[in-house]
């Protein structure tokens, strides 16, 4: 048990799947908001650094929560691309957002029976509804080359998002969920940091008992 506990302490990231399995219960709503915000934030900056295009989120194993509270799309269970279908085709943002919304909903629904449904707060249900019903950007709102420092948390930005077309739109909706939008980056990073820390604590505790 001690060596496993020691090995765990070395970990600096956990997948959402590991978190769900460990607690064997769904994530809470604030964690859902936070993972959406942080994941879209890293996808957005990744796109601007011209890194390899992101893929659809296929399972909670693809979502990694890091010790510092950042959230990335990892390789999950690295599967070879299906025959003829290149896994590395650039996926439009809307497709990645839709897949993220589905996985986040499933994380909120984790452990519930097929005929049971969790009552979500209207704003979170709306976020997930918008994420899973995205509309292909018509190019006029090209997300890729927006100014890096254009924050999503401007207070005077009253343009409420009605339709999601970009990672930035998701982040704006998540920021609008807070009393002060400008708190979004720190707040959501803190929520994810705590999620990682609490899970590691439980992991280590269970390993010691084993």
């Amino acid at each position: 048990g001690r060596s496993l506990a020691a090995a765990l302490v070395m970990r600096d990231a956990l997948s959402l799947e590991e978190i769900l399995q460990l607690y064997s219960q769904p994530i809470n709503e604030e964690q859902a908001w936070a993972v959406c915000y942080q994941c879209c934030g890293s996808l957005r900056s990744r796109g601007r650094r011209g890194e390899s295009p992101s893929r659809r989120v296929e399972s909670p194993a693809d979502i990694r929560i890091w010790k510092d509270g950042t959230v990335t799309l990892g390789d999950g269970a690295r599967r070879p691309p299906a025959e003829g279908k290149s896994e590395y085709l650039h996926r439009p943002e809307t497709e990645v957002i839709e897949s993220l919304g589905i996985i986040i909903y499933k994380a909120l629904d984790y452990g519930l029976k097929e005929n049971e449904e969790r009552e979500l707060s209207p704003p979170l249900e709306q976020l997930i509804d918008y994420m899973t019903n995205t509309v292909e950007a018509d190019g006029s709102k090209d997300e890729g080359y927006e100014a890096l420092d254009e924050g999503v948390e401007e207070e005077n930005d009253k343009g409420d998002v009605e339709v999601i077309q970009s990672y930035r739109d998701v982040m704006k909706l998540c920021a609008a969920h807070l009393p002060t939008r400008s708190d979004a980056p720190n707040h959501y990073q803190a929520v994810c940091r705590a999620l990682f820390a609490e899970t590691m604590e439980l992991y280590t505790f269970l390993a010691r008992i084993k």
């Binding site: 769904p26 709503e29 909903y105 097929e114 049971e116 449904e117 969790r118 009552e119 997930i128 509804d129």
Partner: peptide, 23 residues
């Protein structure tokens, strides 16, 4: 199982769970 921190209701055909399960 302890009391859950969220309310559970009957799944609704027009609810978000039904919509997402069709995706």
């Amino acid at each position: 199982k302890g009391k859950s921190l969220y309310n559970i209701k009957q799944k609704h055909d027009s609810g978000i769970k039904a919509k997402i399960s069709m995706k």
